[in-house]
Protein backbone atom coordinates (compact mmCIF):
# COMPACT_ATOMS: atom_id res chain seq x y z
CA UNK A 1 0.00 0.00 0.00
CA UNK A 2 2.36 2.67 1.22
CA UNK A 3 5.14 1.02 -0.67
CA UNK A 4 5.69 4.17 -2.62
CA UNK A 5 7.63 5.42 0.39
CA UNK A 6 10.43 3.07 -0.49
CA UNK A 7 12.72 3.53 -3.36
CA UNK A 8 13.24 1.32 -6.29
CA UNK A 9 14.60 2.10 -9.66
CA UNK A 10 14.74 0.74 -13.11
CA UNK A 11 11.31 -0.90 -13.25
CA UNK A 12 9.68 -1.35 -16.58
CA UNK A 13 6.02 -0.66 -15.82
CA UNK A 14 4.08 1.82 -13.76
CA UNK A 15 2.61 0.42 -10.59
CA UNK A 16 0.55 1.82 -7.73
CA UNK A 17 3.51 3.41 -6.04
CA UNK A 18 4.49 5.25 -9.20
CA UNK A 19 0.99 6.59 -9.62
CA UNK A 20 0.89 7.77 -6.01
CA UNK A 21 4.31 9.35 -6.34
CA UNK A 22 3.35 11.25 -9.44
CA UNK A 23 0.06 12.27 -7.88
CA UNK A 24 1.97 13.70 -4.94
CA UNK A 25 4.34 15.60 -7.23
CA UNK A 26 1.58 17.04 -9.37
CA UNK A 27 -0.56 17.94 -6.38
CA UNK A 28 2.42 19.59 -4.70
CA UNK A 29 3.27 21.53 -7.80
CA UNK A 30 -0.33 22.78 -8.06
CA UNK A 31 -0.45 23.70 -4.37
CA UNK A 32 2.70 25.75 -4.81
CA UNK A 33 1.91 27.26 -8.17
CA UNK A 34 -1.76 28.16 -7.83
CA UNK A 35 -1.59 30.82 -5.08
CA UNK A 36 1.41 32.49 -6.69
CA UNK A 37 -0.06 32.23 -10.17
CA UNK A 38 -3.36 33.57 -8.90
CA UNK A 39 -1.69 36.56 -7.26
CA UNK A 40 0.28 37.16 -10.45
CA UNK A 41 -2.80 37.09 -12.71
CA UNK A 42 -4.77 39.20 -10.28
CA UNK A 43 -2.07 41.84 -10.19
CA UNK A 44 -3.03 42.77 -13.76
CA UNK A 45 -6.72 43.23 -13.07
CA UNK A 46 -8.19 46.69 -12.94
CA UNK A 47 -9.64 47.84 -9.64
CA UNK A 48 -13.27 47.25 -10.66
CA UNK A 49 -12.60 43.68 -11.68
CA UNK A 50 -10.39 42.69 -8.78
CA UNK A 51 -13.26 43.30 -6.38
CA UNK A 52 -15.89 41.44 -8.40
CA UNK A 53 -17.09 38.04 -7.29
CA UNK A 54 -16.98 35.34 -8.49
CA UNK A 55 -13.54 36.18 -9.83
CA UNK A 56 -12.43 35.78 -13.43
CA UNK A 57 -9.28 34.02 -14.31
CA UNK A 58 -7.67 36.51 -16.64
CA UNK A 59 -7.58 40.29 -16.41
CA UNK A 60 -10.33 41.58 -18.65
CA UNK A 61 -11.47 45.07 -19.40
CA UNK A 62 -14.34 46.51 -21.39
CA UNK A 63 -13.42 46.95 -25.02
CA UNK A 64 -13.74 50.42 -26.42
CA UNK A 65 -14.16 51.80 -29.90
CA UNK A 66 -12.90 55.10 -31.18
CA UNK A 67 -15.51 56.36 -33.60
CA UNK A 68 -15.35 59.47 -35.72
CA UNK A 69 -17.47 62.31 -34.39
CA UNK A 70 -17.31 61.16 -30.75
CA UNK A 71 -14.84 62.78 -28.39
CA UNK A 72 -14.57 59.85 -26.02
CA UNK A 73 -14.14 56.20 -26.98
CA UNK A 74 -17.42 54.28 -26.83
CA UNK A 75 -17.84 50.95 -25.04
CA UNK A 76 -17.93 48.18 -27.59
CA UNK A 77 -20.98 45.88 -27.88
CA UNK A 78 -21.84 43.00 -30.13
CA UNK A 79 -25.21 43.63 -31.74
CA UNK A 80 -27.24 40.90 -33.30
CA UNK A 81 -29.76 42.39 -35.74
CA UNK A 82 -33.07 40.96 -36.92
CA UNK A 83 -31.41 39.01 -39.72
CA UNK A 84 -29.28 37.21 -37.14
CA UNK A 85 -26.09 39.00 -38.23
CA UNK A 86 -23.67 40.15 -35.56
CA UNK A 87 -21.78 43.40 -35.74
CA UNK A 88 -19.55 45.30 -33.36
CA UNK A 89 -21.02 48.64 -32.46
CA UNK A 90 -20.32 51.46 -30.04
CA UNK A 91 -22.91 52.21 -27.36
CA UNK A 92 -23.91 55.89 -27.20
CA UNK A 93 -26.51 55.62 -24.46
CA UNK A 94 -29.07 53.26 -23.05
CA UNK A 95 -32.53 54.26 -21.83
CA UNK A 96 -34.77 51.50 -20.49
CA UNK A 97 -35.06 48.72 -23.03
CA UNK A 98 -33.76 50.81 -25.88
CA UNK A 99 -30.13 51.48 -26.65
CA UNK A 100 -28.61 53.94 -29.03
CA UNK A 101 -25.63 52.49 -30.86
CA UNK A 102 -23.43 53.57 -33.72
CA UNK A 103 -21.74 51.41 -36.31
CA UNK A 104 -18.07 52.33 -36.80
CA UNK A 105 -18.50 51.66 -40.54
CA UNK A 106 -21.02 54.48 -40.83
CA UNK A 107 -20.24 56.84 -37.98
CA UNK A 108 -22.89 59.39 -38.97
CA UNK A 109 -25.84 57.09 -38.45
CA UNK A 110 -27.30 56.38 -35.00
CA UNK A 111 -29.34 53.23 -34.53
CA UNK A 112 -31.92 52.59 -31.88
CA UNK A 113 -31.92 48.90 -30.97
CA UNK A 114 -33.28 46.48 -28.36
CA UNK A 115 -31.15 46.45 -25.22
CA UNK A 116 -31.50 42.65 -25.24
CA UNK A 117 -29.82 42.35 -28.63
CA UNK A 118 -26.47 43.78 -27.56
CA UNK A 119 -23.75 42.12 -25.49
CA UNK A 120 -20.85 43.95 -23.84
CA UNK A 121 -17.47 43.14 -25.36
CA UNK A 122 -14.49 42.58 -23.11
CA UNK A 123 -10.92 41.75 -23.96
CA UNK A 124 -7.92 40.43 -22.10
CA UNK A 125 -6.10 43.56 -21.18
CA UNK A 126 -3.58 43.77 -18.36
CA UNK A 127 -3.92 46.87 -16.22
CA UNK A 128 -0.34 48.08 -16.38
CA UNK A 129 -1.38 51.05 -14.34
CA UNK A 130 -1.38 48.76 -11.31
CA UNK A 131 2.36 48.72 -11.69
CA UNK A 132 3.04 52.29 -12.72
CA UNK A 133 0.72 54.09 -10.32
CA UNK A 134 2.14 52.84 -6.99
CA UNK A 135 5.58 53.82 -8.19
CA UNK A 136 4.41 57.25 -9.29
CA UNK A 137 1.68 58.19 -6.81
CA UNK A 138 2.80 56.34 -3.71
CA UNK A 139 6.26 56.00 -2.22
CA UNK A 140 7.00 52.60 -3.75
CA UNK A 141 9.79 53.95 -5.89
CA UNK A 142 11.51 55.12 -2.69
CA UNK A 143 10.95 51.73 -1.05
CA UNK A 144 12.33 50.01 -4.13
CA UNK A 145 15.42 52.24 -4.16
CA UNK A 146 15.98 51.64 -0.45
CA UNK A 147 15.70 47.88 -0.91
CA UNK A 148 18.11 47.90 -3.83
CA UNK A 149 20.54 50.06 -1.87
CA UNK A 150 20.45 47.90 1.25
CA UNK A 151 20.70 44.67 -0.73
CA UNK A 152 23.59 45.81 -2.91
CA UNK A 153 25.70 47.48 -0.25
CA UNK A 154 25.11 44.80 2.37
CA UNK A 155 25.97 42.04 -0.10
CA UNK A 156 29.21 43.68 -1.21
CA UNK A 157 30.24 44.33 2.39
CA UNK A 158 29.27 40.80 3.39
CA UNK A 159 31.41 39.32 0.63
CA UNK A 160 34.44 41.47 1.41
CA UNK A 161 34.37 41.27 5.20
CA UNK A 162 33.37 37.62 5.42
CA UNK A 163 35.95 36.51 2.88
CA UNK A 164 38.71 38.43 4.65
CA UNK A 165 37.78 36.87 7.97
CA UNK A 166 37.43 33.43 6.41
CA UNK A 167 40.86 33.83 4.80
CA UNK A 168 42.41 34.61 8.18
CA UNK A 169 40.57 31.78 9.90
CA UNK A 170 41.38 29.16 7.28
CA UNK A 171 44.90 29.98 6.15
CA UNK A 172 46.69 31.15 9.30
CA UNK A 173 47.33 29.60 12.65
CA UNK A 174 47.31 32.41 15.12
CA UNK A 175 46.58 32.75 18.78
CA UNK A 176 42.87 33.27 19.27
CA UNK A 177 41.79 31.94 15.88
CA UNK A 178 39.98 28.98 17.38
CA UNK A 179 38.33 31.20 19.98
CA UNK A 180 37.04 33.55 17.32
CA UNK A 181 35.78 30.69 15.22
CA UNK A 182 33.98 28.97 18.08
CA UNK A 183 32.50 32.30 19.20
CA UNK A 184 31.10 32.86 15.72
CA UNK A 185 29.81 29.33 15.39
CA UNK A 186 28.05 29.52 18.74
CA UNK A 187 25.99 32.46 17.52
CA UNK A 188 25.09 30.71 14.28
CA UNK A 189 21.91 29.49 15.93
CA UNK A 190 21.24 32.68 17.85
CA UNK A 191 18.04 34.23 16.57
CA UNK A 192 17.49 37.95 16.26
CA UNK A 193 14.38 37.70 18.41
CA UNK A 194 16.48 36.97 21.48
CA UNK A 195 18.65 40.07 21.17
CA UNK A 196 16.13 42.43 19.58
CA UNK A 197 16.12 44.98 22.38
CA UNK A 198 19.87 45.31 23.07
CA UNK A 199 20.67 45.20 19.36
CA UNK A 200 18.29 48.09 18.86
CA UNK A 201 19.99 49.96 21.69
CA UNK A 202 23.34 49.51 19.97
CA UNK A 203 21.87 50.92 16.78
CA UNK A 204 20.39 53.88 18.67
CA UNK A 205 23.68 54.37 20.52
CA UNK A 206 25.54 54.55 17.20
CA UNK A 207 22.99 57.04 15.96
CA UNK A 208 21.94 54.68 13.20
CA UNK A 209 18.28 54.30 14.17
CA UNK A 210 15.91 55.03 11.31
CA UNK A 211 18.90 54.85 8.97
CA UNK A 212 19.52 52.33 6.20
CA UNK A 213 23.11 51.93 7.40
CA UNK A 214 21.71 50.67 10.69
CA UNK A 215 20.14 47.81 8.77
CA UNK A 216 23.24 47.22 6.67
CA UNK A 217 25.98 47.22 9.31
CA UNK A 218 24.22 44.89 11.68
CA UNK A 219 23.67 42.23 9.03
CA UNK A 220 27.00 42.02 7.17
CA UNK A 221 29.15 40.18 9.71
CA UNK A 222 27.25 36.92 9.19
CA UNK A 223 28.74 33.89 10.93
CA UNK A 224 27.05 31.79 8.25
CA UNK A 225 29.01 33.50 5.50
CA UNK A 226 32.31 33.23 7.33
CA UNK A 227 31.66 29.57 8.03
CA UNK A 228 30.68 28.76 4.46
CA UNK A 229 33.70 30.54 2.97
CA UNK A 230 36.11 29.16 5.55
CA UNK A 231 35.08 25.59 4.81
CA UNK A 232 35.65 26.23 1.12
CA UNK A 233 38.99 27.98 1.59
CA UNK A 234 40.25 25.06 3.66
CA UNK A 235 40.20 23.05 0.43
CA UNK A 236 42.63 25.44 -1.28
CA UNK A 237 46.12 23.94 -0.83
CA UNK A 238 48.40 25.87 1.52
CA UNK A 239 51.21 25.28 -0.96
CA UNK A 240 49.70 27.93 -3.21
CA UNK A 241 49.99 30.51 -0.48
CA UNK A 242 53.56 29.57 0.29
CA UNK A 243 54.42 29.65 -3.39
CA UNK A 244 52.93 33.14 -3.53
CA UNK A 245 54.94 34.21 -0.51
CA UNK A 246 58.08 32.93 -2.21
CA UNK A 247 56.86 34.93 -5.21
CA UNK A 248 57.06 38.07 -3.07
CA UNK A 249 53.31 38.58 -2.82
CA UNK A 250 52.08 40.59 0.15
CA UNK A 251 49.42 38.96 2.30
CA UNK A 252 46.77 41.20 0.79
CA UNK A 253 47.89 40.23 -2.70
CA UNK A 254 47.62 36.57 -1.75
CA UNK A 255 44.06 37.24 -0.58
CA UNK A 256 43.12 39.27 -3.62
CA UNK A 257 44.90 37.45 -6.43
CA UNK A 258 44.93 33.85 -5.20
CA UNK A 259 42.30 33.20 -2.55
CA UNK A 260 39.43 35.29 -3.91
CA UNK A 261 39.53 33.99 -7.50
CA UNK A 262 39.83 30.41 -6.26
CA UNK A 263 36.90 30.86 -3.86
CA UNK A 264 34.63 32.12 -6.62
CA UNK A 265 32.10 29.25 -6.36
CA UNK A 266 31.63 29.76 -2.63
CA UNK A 267 31.52 33.52 -3.05
CA UNK A 268 28.81 33.09 -5.68
CA UNK A 269 26.70 31.00 -3.32
CA UNK A 270 27.13 33.52 -0.51
CA UNK A 271 26.33 36.41 -2.84
CA UNK A 272 23.12 34.73 -3.95
CA UNK A 273 22.07 34.03 -0.39
CA UNK A 274 23.02 37.48 0.81
CA UNK A 275 20.92 39.12 -1.90
CA UNK A 276 17.95 36.95 -1.00
CA UNK A 277 18.36 37.49 2.75
CA UNK A 278 18.68 41.24 2.53
CA UNK A 279 15.93 41.63 -0.02
CA UNK A 280 13.52 39.60 2.12
CA UNK A 281 14.53 40.93 5.57
CA UNK A 282 11.53 42.03 7.59
CA UNK A 283 11.70 42.02 11.39
CA UNK A 284 15.02 43.84 11.79
CA UNK A 285 14.23 46.66 9.33
CA UNK A 286 10.81 46.86 11.00
CA UNK A 287 12.53 47.63 14.30
CA UNK A 288 15.26 49.92 12.98
CA UNK A 289 13.43 51.95 10.36
CA UNK A 290 10.59 54.17 11.47
CA UNK A 291 9.97 56.85 8.86
CA UNK A 292 8.26 55.81 5.63
CA UNK A 293 10.90 57.44 3.45
CA UNK A 294 13.39 54.91 4.84
CA UNK A 295 11.17 51.86 4.38
CA UNK A 296 12.38 48.96 2.35
CA UNK A 297 10.00 47.34 -0.12
CA UNK A 298 8.94 44.68 2.40
CA UNK A 299 8.12 47.27 5.04
CA UNK A 300 6.37 49.53 2.57
CA UNK A 301 4.30 46.64 1.30
CA UNK A 302 3.33 45.65 4.83
CA UNK A 303 2.44 49.21 5.76
CA UNK A 304 0.44 49.67 2.58
CA UNK A 305 -1.60 46.51 3.06
CA UNK A 306 -2.35 47.49 6.66
CA UNK A 307 -4.07 50.69 5.64
CA UNK A 308 -7.78 51.10 6.13
CA UNK A 309 -8.83 50.76 2.50
CA UNK A 310 -7.18 47.70 1.09
CA UNK A 311 -6.18 48.37 -2.51
CA UNK A 312 -5.49 44.84 -3.62
CA UNK A 313 -4.71 45.79 -7.21
CA UNK A 314 -1.75 47.84 -6.00
CA UNK A 315 -0.72 45.43 -3.24
CA UNK A 316 -0.58 42.52 -5.62
CA UNK A 317 1.40 44.34 -8.27
CA UNK A 318 3.96 45.40 -5.68
CA UNK A 319 4.03 41.88 -4.28
CA UNK A 320 4.97 40.69 -7.75
CA UNK A 321 7.69 43.34 -7.89
CA UNK A 322 8.98 42.11 -4.53
CA UNK A 323 9.17 38.49 -5.60
CA UNK A 324 10.54 39.19 -9.06
CA UNK A 325 14.28 39.56 -8.30
CA UNK A 326 14.32 36.46 -6.14
CA UNK A 327 12.46 34.54 -8.81
CA UNK A 328 14.86 35.63 -11.54
CA UNK A 329 17.85 34.71 -9.42
CA UNK A 330 16.28 31.34 -8.79
CA UNK A 331 15.48 30.73 -12.44
CA UNK A 332 19.06 31.33 -13.51
CA UNK A 333 21.00 30.06 -10.52
CA UNK A 334 18.71 27.30 -9.31
CA UNK A 335 21.40 24.66 -9.32
CA UNK A 336 23.86 26.71 -7.24
CA UNK A 337 21.18 27.45 -4.68
CA UNK A 338 19.77 23.98 -4.15
CA UNK A 339 23.22 22.44 -4.09
CA UNK A 340 24.51 25.15 -1.77
CA UNK A 341 21.65 24.49 0.62
CA UNK A 342 22.04 20.74 0.47
CA UNK A 343 25.76 20.84 1.12
CA UNK A 344 25.88 23.55 3.77
CA UNK A 345 22.47 23.43 5.42
CA UNK A 346 22.27 27.19 5.08
CA UNK A 347 18.98 28.88 4.48
Amino acid sequence: MLGFLTRTRGKSRMDVTDILAWAWLILGTLVIAIPIGWAFLSSFKPEAEINSFPPTLLPRAAQELVIEGYDDPLPAYAWTDEQGQTRTVGLVRRIGLKATVVDPESPGERLSVDAGSIVKQTAIRPAWSNYTEPLERFAFLTYLKNSVFVTTVATILTLVLNSMAAFALSKYRFRGSTTIFVLMLSTLMLPLSVIMVPAFMVVVGLNLADNLWGVIFSTVATPTGVFLLRQYMLTIPDDLIEAARVDAASEFRIYWRIILPLSAPALAVLAIFSVIWRWNDFLWPLIVLSSPENYTLQLGLNAFQGQFTVQWHYILSMTVVALLPVTLIFLFLQRYITEGVASSGVK
Binding site: G28, N280, F282, Q298, L301, V326, V341, K347
Partner: peptide
Protein backbone atom coordinates in the same frame (compact mmCIF):
# COMPACT_ATOMS: atom_id res chain seq x y z
CA UNK B 1 9.55 23.76 -7.71
CA UNK B 2 9.30 22.61 -4.11
CA UNK B 3 12.21 24.77 -3.03
CA UNK B 4 11.06 27.97 -4.71
CA UNK B 5 8.75 29.26 -1.91
CA UNK B 6 11.65 29.08 0.56
CA UNK B 7 13.28 31.99 -1.24
CA UNK B 8 10.27 34.29 -1.08
CA UNK B 9 9.98 36.98 1.54
CA UNK B 10 7.60 36.41 4.45
CA UNK B 11 5.64 39.51 3.46
CA UNK B 12 5.21 38.26 -0.09
Amino acid sequence: IFFYPVLLSPVV
